[in-house]
């Protein structure tokens, strides 16, 4: 497959004109994408006065400061650091639980036969398409009845069950790419189905598991809607809920808000950076490593 890509490449960027067009388009998209981020970053490291009077893009006067960050992290009313801790408390189990469960489900779908397998899988795909807003009212009442409203556990359960379908889909495709002979070899070597899964399939699928985990973590971290609906105690609020509260009651402090946003972005960015190697491999698939 990689060879096919390579052979397709000369046609794609063969002529100088095509190279030019490609570059222009790519740079335009890139600039559009990165500009808001640069804006937020510049606003966050300048005194608010400077931004209001000259705009974040103006090169002079430029007085870099960390005051916004300090204020955002240790705001006595709405502490962003508390939000970050809460986000971790929510996001870590909300990643590990669905990836663990979905790995089992996906392996079942990839390798075992059961009567209504096809229909079950189609149902899972269908459920992935249901919007959150449609589900939130039943979820709200379900959690209320379970006395899990406004608790970490409630939100973790909701995120976990929300993650299972797409992770199942993702990992099923990944497991299907693994060479089946390895599993057969393990069975002949004396492994039970579960031992095959644990000792051969899981280690080989590590890039796939990491890709799914990174995406799920980022998704849970960035979620605002579920948290907004299910958590209302300020001490338990996650970072995305804390952010809008930073804007204050009478006037909007954009400096504070921007620095808060940058801080909130850091965790998913770090996770991406840390696991980038596996993450990319997870998407390319094991079969294409050679």
């Amino acid at each position: 497959m990689r060879r096919a890509l390579r052979s397709g490449r000369p046609g794609l960027i063969g002529s100088p004109f095509k190279i030019l067009v490609l570059n222009v388009v790519a740079w335009a998209v890139g600039v559009l994408w990165i500009t808001p981020f640069i804006g937020i970053f510049m606003t966050s490291i300048r005194p608010f006065r400077e931004v209001v009077l000259h705009g974040w893009w103006s090169p002079v006067p430029f007085t870099p400061t960390l005051k916004n960050y300090v204020d955002a992290l240790f705001n006595p009313m709405f502490s962003l650091s508390r939000g970050i801790i809460n986000s971790f408390i929510i996001a870590v189990p909300s990643t590990l639980i669905p990836v663990g469960i979905a790995a089992l489900t996906a392996y079942g779908f990839a390798r075992f036969s059961l009567p209504v397998k096809r229909y079950l899988f189609v149902t899972i795909l269908f459920l992935m398409a249901v919007p959150q807003q449609m589900m939130i009212i039943p979820i709200f009442f379900l959690l209320k009845d379970l006395h899990l409203l406004n608790t970490y556990l409630g939100l973790i359960l909701v995120h976990s069950s929300w993650g299972i379908p797409w992770i199942t889909f993702f990992l099923k495709n990944y497991f299907s790419l693994l060479p089946v002979e390895l599993e057969e070899a393990a069975r002949v070597d004396g492994a039970t189905d579960f031992q095959v899964f644990r000792k051969v399939v899981l280690p080989l699928a590590l890039p796939g598991l990491i890709s799914a985990s990174v995406l799920q973590f980022a998704w849970v971290w960035n979620d605002f809607f579920f948290a907004l609906m299910l958590i209302f105690d300020p001490d338990k609020m996650v970072v995305t809920q804390m952010l809008p509260r930073l804007k204050g009651q009478y006037q909007v402090d954009w400096g504070l808000l921007s620095s808060g946003s940058v801080i909130a972005m850091l965790a998913p960015l770090l996770i991406y950076a840390l696991f980038n190697r596996y993450y990319m491999r997870g998407f390319r698939g094991w079969a294409m490593k050679g």
């Binding site: 060479p179 002979e181 390895l182 057969e184 070899a185 393990a186 069975r187 002949v188 070597d189 004396g190 492994a191 039970t192 051969v200 080989l204």
Partner: peptide, 17 residues
Amino acid sequence: PRDRNVGMVFQNWALYP
């Protein structure tokens, strides 16, 4: 298969990478 006590060598050897 695990209870048959057979050893098998696969065409591509199927070593655990």
